[in-house]
Simulated scan of single mutants.
Amino acid sequence: MISIVTPSFNQGRFIEETIVSVVGQGCLDLEYIVIDGGSDDETLDIIKKYEDRLAWWVSEPDGGQYDALNKGFAKSTGEIMGWLNSDDKYTPWTLSVAAEIFRQLPEVEWLTSMYPLVWDEKGRAVRCAPRGPFNGDDFFKGDNLPGMGRQATGWIQQEATFWRRSLWERAGGSLDASMSYAGDFELWARFFKLGVLYAADVPLGGFRRYGAQKTGTAPDKYKQEALQALLRHGGKPRGQPAAAIAHGCKRICPNRLKPLMSELHLITLGKVCVFDTDSGRWGVVER
């Protein structure tokens, strides 16, 4: 079973698109939970419209997004977990692909996408640029911090990230509710200490970018919280020259030479899930 939690507060403009993108997946083994923080717009009418498709929902004051998520995950029972904020959306194939990868590749403990989508205010896909692959060594050197520009290998897209319950429980079984912005980044730091992040070679979800969103209006606060979380977990951003050299090696090095570069400790490779159309199965390559 896949458990998805959506936290919400006064997102009546977008939450129906979010809900439909989840319940419209055709995933029979889905547990969908919505935690609303006491909205006073049209949100509750929309949630009630779909309540027969929800495993559980509630509308009451909470301590913010990450407190709401903890409340929802505490009610969940699925083996695979993830969350989708109330202004974001999945692709039509998200849950079927994620479930299949976890089923066929038992070594995968958490999964994201190499192709993060960006939706505009109208819900259209307007950007899809490759990111990653990802690995813990580069993560703790600051390469996935937001705002690193050309020195970054790209953020880990929360909307496209899923994990096994066993990893969640080993990592503490909750998000850090004291954080206001970068609770996802802090969770990734804990996950990286415990397991390898695999990246699917396909888009799995999208972040809606518009002017009034929390992370859109306070990007510096997110960056500050993410950096604090990285330092707290023992990470240390490397300087721009070192980052530029490492990333330049990855970009210009032919794939056939990357294993040698990895053996020489010049680069660190990541695990990528790729689909073989002949066998109809997912496999793993290093890039």
Rank of each mutant, 00 (worst) to 15 (best):
G82E: 05
G82H: 02
G82T: 09
W83N: 15
W83P: 02
W83M: 13
W83K: 11
L84K: 03
L84N: 09
N85P: 06
N85W: 07
S86D: 15
S86T: 10
S86F: 02
S86A: 15
S86I: 08
D87Y: 10
D87N: 13
D87V: 08
D88L: 09
Y90G: 02
Y90M: 14
T91M: 13
T91C: 11
P92K: 01
P92A: 05
P92C: 07
T94C: 12
T94R: 00
L95N: 05
S96M: 09
S96D: 12
V97D: 01
V97W: 02
V97T: 14
A98I: 12
A99G: 07
A99L: 12
E100Q: 15
E100P: 00
F102D: 00
F102T: 08
R103P: 00
R103V: 04
R103C: 04
Q104L: 12
Q104T: 08
L105M: 14
L105N: 10
L105Q: 13
P106Q: 04
E107F: 02
E107H: 05
E107D: 13
V108T: 02
V108I: 13
V108G: 01
V108C: 07
E109I: 01
W110C: 10
W110N: 06
L111C: 10
T112K: 10
S113L: 12
S113A: 14
M114A: 05
M114S: 06
Y115N: 06
Y115M: 12
Y115S: 01
Y115G: 01
P116T: 12
L117N: 07
L117A: 09
L117C: 09
L117W: 10
L117D: 10
V118H: 07
W119G: 05
W119P: 04
D120G: 01
D120P: 00
D120T: 01
D120H: 05
D120W: 03
E121P: 00
E121F: 03
K122S: 14
K122H: 12
K122L: 08
K122P: 00
K122A: 13
K122M: 07
G123E: 09
R124F: 10
R124V: 13
A125T: 09
A125L: 03
A125F: 00
A125K: 11
V126F: 11
V126Q: 11
R127F: 11
R127E: 15
C128P: 04
C128E: 13
C128A: 14
A129C: 04
A129P: 00
P130I: 13
P130D: 07
P130C: 09
P130N: 08
R131E: 14
R131D: 06
G132C: 10
G132Y: 05
F134C: 08
F134Q: 05
N135K: 04
N135W: 02
N135V: 03
N135S: 06
N135M: 06
G136R: 13
D137V: 09
D137N: 04
D137G: 01
D138S: 01
F139G: 02
F139I: 01
F140C: 07
F140N: 05
K141S: 13
K141R: 15
K141L: 15
G142M: 03
G142F: 03
G142D: 02
